[in-house]
């Protein structure tokens, strides 16, 4: 595996007060991100995600451990020259227009003025800010800032994109747009390191994820490996079921609804649901639908965090997984 990001045994300890109790934000975090993959870095609030991002981008130095970014430490300007970083809730120089700000960030990244002039209008068009190109960023909505931040992260055509909550504050159309851009960048061969609370989006975008919890890696793997291909349950919708068979289905189902002669039942994964469907058919009933329900990243995430924390923390994690924070 050709690693673009390599973190080895990262530790970061803060001491909020001179003689206060130390806070261990990272405790031996190790992972690698392969070239060209979209990598999801997940975790509940306070797990150490932002600290990891800051260490990876050179904004913070680890207490111990090593980081390699595109083959060099983050302190090396050559590594940062190929990094496109979008921080969470990004702020920019408010008085600049998007064109001026792209020129500013392009210059800081070593892009020639002629390249900036050529790329900036194209990027603003791509994030649908062409109409606002002469307005000051101060008047931008949160979603517009987010889209502009993505354009600023792309101005120097980086090899690695590190995006911290890139879908935060966006309306549905904005979310779709940003997701399309991320997928296009991945298709173009760029490596994407994505930190997000919106797990449905992570599932849609990422090849591989890592869950960090209490400063340690709790789980890691590809989405396929982690979610297991087999359905966790089935939804059976049928009509004209004989009463005795209906009772058997009711007993096996975790959820059972009856409207007229139509029955809707959630049955466990495995062979029972297809078996019931076959028996309904054999008994002269009509199987209207048999829908497999696979585990989502969100429900898997909640399950993992629950197993790490114990059941008392489930409600908080559910709220976080739904994007509401904890």
């Amino acid at each position: 595996m050709n690693s673009v990001v390599r973190a080895h045994d990262l530790h970061k300890t803060f001491r909020p007060q001179a003689f206060g109790k130390p806070v261990h934000a990272l405790r031996g975090v190790s992972f690698e991100v392969a070239e060209g993959e979209c990598f999801g870095y997940l975790g509940p609030n306070g797990a150490g995600k932002t600290t990891t991002m800051k260490v990876l981008t050179g904004l913070m130095t680890p207490t111990s451990g090593t980081v390699s970014l595109l083959g060099a430490p983050p302190s090396d300007a050559s590594a940062r020259s190929r990094l496109g970083y979008l921080p969470e809730n990004p702020y920019f120089y408010e008085h600049l227009t998007p064109m001026e700000a792209l020129s500013f960030y392009g210059t800081l990244s070593g892009v020639s003025p002629s390249d900036v002039r050529e790329r900036a209008p194209r990027l603003l068009d791509r994030v649908q800010l062409t109409d606002a190109k002469d307005r000051r960023i101060r008047g931008f909505s949160k979603g517009m800032r987010q889209r502009f931040g993505l354009a600023a992260a792309l101005i120097h055509e980086p090899s690695l994109l590190m995006l911290d909550e890139p879908l935060s504050g966006l309306d549905p159309a904005g979310r779709r747009l940003v997701k399309e851009i991320i997928l296009e960048e991945r298709e173009a061969g760029r490596t994407v390191f994505l930190c997000s609370h919106v797990l449905a989006d992570v599932q849609e975008l990422c090849d591989r994820v890592v869950i960090v919890h209490n400063g340690q890696i709790a789980r890691s793997g590809t989405i396929h490996e982690l979610l297991d291909g087999a359905p966790r349950s089935f939804e059976l919708i049928a009509a004209g079921i004989p009463d005795d068979l209906k009772d058997e289905i009711r007993a096996a189902a975790s959820l059972f609804r009856e409207a007229g002669e139509t029955v809707t039942a959630r049955l466990p994964g495995g062979d029972s649901a297809p078996d019931f469907a076959a028996r309904v058919h054999a008994a002269g009933g009509r199987v209207l639908a048999l829908v497999p329900e696979r585990e989502t990243l969100e429900s898997w995430f909640v399950r993992v965090i629950q197993s790490e924390n114990g059941p008392s923390d489930v409600a908080r994690q559910r709220a976080m997984a739904a994007g509401g924070g904890a």
Binding site: G58, R80, P90, Y91, G110, G149, H156
Partner: peptide, 11 residues
């Protein structure tokens, strides 16, 4: 946090 978007570049 404007410093985040500046210091993560080549400067």
């Amino acid at each position: 946090r404007t410093v985040y978007t500046v210091l993560t570049r080549t400067g």
